[in-house]
Design a binder for these strands. Structure first.
Lengths: 260, 260
DNA sequence: CGACACCTTGAAGAGGTTCAAGAAATGTGG
DNA sequence: CCACATTTCTTGAACCTCTTCAAGGTGTCG
């Protein structure tokens, strides 16, 4: 039941580098030789541009499981590219209500919420030991004035996040519990697959409660829905280990004709 | 029961210009003399920068009530700054499910969803006769390489949209019907007030069904909740005319201690 | 190994949906 | 400008999904 990385067709490199031994002092912080570059950075850069891009990443930072990368109210300085590990972001209302707004994995960028008011408006918490590349935002600004591809890339990343959130709004606004969980699993496994992992097996890094928060459900409902899927032979669930047995069934649950 | 524009404290100019007579041919398309500039454009620009900014807006475009500004799948060329009128944006799932992702009014920018894949991923529909400024995105790119304030402004606009959507996710994920509608009304009236309208009276430009779609509720629930608020003396509702009688009550409904 | 966090399952209950019917407003064409 | 068709809104009643509360089981970490 191990989550076995397999090469993904669309990525030459897989995150096997995460297991390489390293010493933080000798570590060359550079995008140009990072195997996640194709996820974080624009593609098709010229050698000179690539060299400039290396300037964006100031440092790397390690975050222990459960630790906070940034929190609501903190001043915004940098975006973070996830190198290894897994995060959740969540917003908190005045009354203490909490909402997980996303789960992020290697190659994804977090911190975009902080740009508008120079303060973060959500918390980012590591769900497993993680490492991020710290990219000072003013440096990104300077450089993207000179490297067009970077400018466009930044725009694309922000736009992608907006579109992703549209999808979550659709999910929260119009789907039932089973549809939500099915969509969630398909999305997770698809992103993992793009990183070289199995397209049918995954290990959830978050609790039922966190899944529930993200999906607008209570943890009991999440648990029950997992059990339902399991009874129906669609997935095999052992705690956080999930094996998808029938991807098509999940897809048809998501696309089930809704009464809008 | 007319919606009477009154000067807002934080804006020197109000959208009274929208009633000025004009001829599309003689119309000077320029941000520098637009009274909505403080909403769309960065503040504190130098005169030269201001002049450059005028280059962003290529043309204006009028959209009749019910007409489509752009639709899902269409190729993306430009962002649009709303000059007058009111829009909704909505995404559609494969199965035909529909979700209103936002309502936009004067001074707000739409089309950001199109950047990531050079295609729009949602529909933008005018809910009343409208006029927009067409801002070709590549021109924005060029110019923002030269005018730092514009670059930062574009980043801020996108970040603001991300943060707004976080708020919607919180609403959809954790609020009950009454809380959602209360939050919706407060948000609308606050934005209208920032544009010089009353802080207690508003005219809804959308149907109950569209409100429901946005809030993840059925139109009947929206209607019933309006009735409830009305019975409780919190608002006065006559069709699409809403008068808020007790803003504090609405606020306390939104911030009611939630069981998470 | 024991404490704690996390997960599962049942039963009862609440909130929102669905279906249905009618009323009010809006738009259209003669 | 009025009559009619259409859209939009309101309200009631039954139903269903998800939540709440509760209890016990499982896994994990120091």
């Amino acid at each position: 039941m191990k989550e076995t990385p397999v090469p993904a067709p669309n990525l030459k490199l897989i995150p096997s580098g995460t297991t390489e031994p390293f010493d933080p002092h000798s570590m060359k912080v550079a995008c140009s030789n990072c195997n996640l570059r194709e996820l974080c950075m624009p593609i098709g850069l010229s050698p000179e541009e690539l060299e400039r891009i290396d300037e964006v990443v100031a440092t790397r930072r390690k975050i222990k499981r459960g630790a906070i990368l940034f929190r609501n109210g903190e001043s915004f300085q940098s975006l973070f590219a996830i190198r290894t590990g897994f995060f959740k972001t969540c917003v908190t209302a005045e009354d203490g209500r909490d909402q997980v707004t996303g789960f992020q994995m290697a190659g994804e960028i977090i911190g975009l919420d902080g740009i508008v008011n120079d303060r973060h408006t959500c918390d980012a918490i590591a769900l497993e030991d993680a490492e991020v590349c710290v990219m000072p935002f003013d440096r990104i600004g300077e450089l993207s004035r000179e490297v067009n591809a970077l400018q466009h890339h930044v725009h694309r990343i922000m736009s992608r996040e907006i579109v992703r959130e549209h999808g979550v709004m659709l999910l929260l606004g119009s789907m039932r519990a089973e549809e939500r969980l099915a969509a969630f699993l398909l999305n997770l496994v698809q992103r993992l697959h793009a990183r070289g992992f199995s397209r049918s097996e995954l290990v959830l890094r978050m609790t039922r409660e966190e899944i529930g928060s993200y999906l607008g459900l209570k943890l009991e409902t999440v648990s029950r829905t997992f059990s339902k899927f399991s009874e129906d032979g669609i997935v095999e669930v052992r705690q956080r280990h999930v094996r998808i047995l029938d991807t098509e069934a999940l897809k048809s649950i998501v696309n089930r004709q809704a009464c809008n």
